[in-house]
Structures are given as C-alpha cells and as structure tokens.
Design a protein around this nucleic acid. Structure first.
Lengths: 191, 191
DNA sequence: CCTGTCCATTAACAATTGATAAAAAGCAAC
DNA sequence: GTTGCTTTTTATCAATTGTTAATGGACAGG
C-alpha cells in the first residue's frame, strides 16, 4: 500500500478514530500532491474541489487586505488536516489563499466524494464534523486572543500552539497572524 | 398556521431559497421560545441541542477571558440565524455563551432532527451548508479586521455591518467585540 | 423627590504599538 | 568568496490605545 495512505490513516485516527472499513472507503480516493516552497496551491476566487491532509511541511492560509499586505489567517503543520473545503469555499470558489511556506506534501480527496461518504457513513460523518468543530474552535480561540490579549501575550500563545514554528517561517507571516508589524514582533522577541 | 413559522420561512428563503415541500419538513419541528433581556439562553459547558432562528431582538455570543471580562464574539439581530449547533457545541456541550441583549423571541428546532433532515434532503443540506459558510466567512472577515485594521476602522466596519446597533446595546459589549476598552470606544465615538 | 446603580463621557498620564529609516544578518546564485 | 536580495534587528519619534479616576446622565425602586 502507498505509504502516504498510511500517514493519512494516522492523521484521521489522531483526530477521531474510525474503523478499518470506514478508512478503506476513503483510501481508494486519496491522491498525492506536492508543492514547492512559495507556491499558492489554493488561490482566492479560483475553483478548488478537494479536501487536504498535510503530510509534510508547513503552509499558511491568508488574505490580502486593501493595502496589499498578506494577512495570515492560520498555519497548518505536518500531520494535520487543512481547513475543510466547505468553509473555505463559496460558490465553488476558494475564499482565501493557501501558500506553501516550505516544500509541502499533501494527500487530497475530492470534496464532493468526501461529502457523499459523510452522508452515507456515520463514522466518516462524525470524523468530518469533529474536523469542522476543531477548525471553528481554533478560530474562536484566536479571535478571543486578538480581542483581549496584548501583542506580547498573543506571541506567547502562538509559541504554545505552534511549537518550533517561530524559527522555520518568515516572521512577517507570524506578525500578520498576531496582528502586529514585523518590527513590533522583532521588538517583542528581544525580551 | 402559527405566524412565527412564516417568519422562519422568510428567514430561510432570504439565505438560500428552498421549496415549499422542504420547508414543510422543517416546519413541523419548529418551536417558539422567548427570553428576557439579560438571560443567557445558551451557557458554556451546558448541554444544548437546538438550532435557532432570531425572530425578534438582539443577542450576543461571548466568552469570559481569564480576567473575568465578557468578550463579545458576535452579534445576532432580528430575522437572522444563530451560529449553527455543530460549530458552537463540542462533546454535546456549548463552547460559548449566548446572552439576550434585549427581550428576544426565537424559533428553535432539534439539532439532531435538523441534521437528519440535512442528510435526507438536498435542499435542506444546501441551506445548512450556506449557513455554515456564511458564519465562517463572517468570522474570517472579523479576524482580518482585528489583525489589520486600526480600532477606528474596526468601529467603522462594525457600523456598516450592524447598522443601528450602536444605540441599542451596551457599549461595553461593542468595545470587547472591537478588541478595545469602553473608554477607547467612547473616545473614538467623539470624533 | 431622593437614592443608588449602571453606563457613558472626559481628562491626565502611562504604556504599547506603529512608521520610517538605517544597519546587520542570512541566503542563494554566480 | 562576492554580489545582490530579502529578512531581521535596532533606533528614534509619533500615534494609538490602556489605565485610573472623576463627572454627569439615565433610570428604576422606594
């Protein structure tokens, strides 16, 4: 069996264990993809019909504000699941960008196919809903941080959530995630 | 027919039109609820198994930060749909509070029942997914604002999104939504 | 009417964060 | 290594936002 599929199984079971049978229903539709550092593998207003598992590397989701700056929404690291298709897609088009911050390896599955599997299989439906909830909770958690913590406390929180990430990716991406300038980030780091 | 059910039909069709037949499947499970100003009708870590339509009044979703302050996550106004059950519930328990900021009237439907309707009926499934996406887009939009706009611009954005709300609810709830103190909000308002 | 409470405003000062520019450090291509 | 390019740090000053405390208004209950 392709070893990346085994990787996907581990990722799924880490989030919400499913039976071997349920996994087999998913497995046969999995495909492998890889992108070079710097590539936007999902782009705003472009069609995209996949769910993704992060096998290797780091990526960010982001949007561009009126001033033209890339504002990081979230980071995704090795052995995790990308934001579900349903919430990053409106009218068949992506509502945000996803950029590879290092070389990345992904497993993908057609989103319509996965939706069908969710409908016909209770375990897969539960798994999908857990992913959705985790993504949402993470958003609410970040929102609360942005609304009620100082920049320094947000940085500390970022370090707890994404251990090791601070030295692997451009600080500009972290600064916009924290809602500060990269100069301010550098100042906070010195402490 | 109970007139509040007609209200619900209008709210649904405003978001994502469905057929008369699909609405009838929902209609028979609708119930009416009302709460007095100040009531928490959903509480953190308490069980809740309903989807809600806002018929009358204003409410906020919020969390309490370590300092004990209520941090507003979002506002919900008349003729809109509350954040879907699946994203405000983890392990059967609510992951945030919802408080009535005025007297409110709601229509509710059992969430498991609604999930079943989503599975068996394509129109209802589409409707449910549109609600989910709208909620998410609204969150991303707010996140971008918190991360990249000044407090003044966030206030302007709030005014555009929630016309008229500024004079109807306590400013403390608005300030924490904007991520500033109520003193700062008062200062910005003077301009 | 008076009282107490809650909420919004104002003021003065402190702390945080931003803007700009210059210097230093990394890093890839040659 | 050297050259360019980008990223990070540092410094200075300005602007924004927070903190604390005092003031005044709105309003319900007596």
């Amino acid at each position: 069996m392709d070893s990346f599929k085994n990787n996907v199984k581990n990722i799924i079971n880490e989030v919400c264990p499913i039976s071997e049978l349920a996994f087999e229903a998913i497995e046969k539709y999995l495909e492998f993809e890889s992108y070079a550092k710097g590539a936007d593998f999902i782009s705003l207003n472009k069609e995209n019909d996949k769910e993704y598992f992060m096998l290797k590397g780091i990526c960010k989701s982001y949007l561009i504000n009126p001033e033209g700056d890339e504002i990081t929404i979230s980071f995704y690291v090795e052995n995790s699941i990308l934001s579900p298709h349903s919430i990053r897609t409106s009218n068949m088009k992506a509502n945000q960008y996803f950029k590879a911050l290092t070389n990345v390896e992904l497993a993908s599955i057609n989103a319509s196919k996965f939706e069908a599997l969710m409908i016909e299989n209770l375990e897969i439906r539960n798994f999908g809903n857990v992913v959705l909830q985790k993504e949402l909770l993470s958003k609410v958690d970040k929102e609360i941080g942005l609304a009620s913590l100082s920049a320094k406390d947000r940085l500390l929180k970022f370090r707890r959530k994404y251990k090791m990430l601070e030295n692997l990716i451009p600080h500009g991406a972290i600064a916009s995630y924290l809602g500060i300038t990269n100069v301010s980030l550098s100042r906070l780091r010195k402490e």
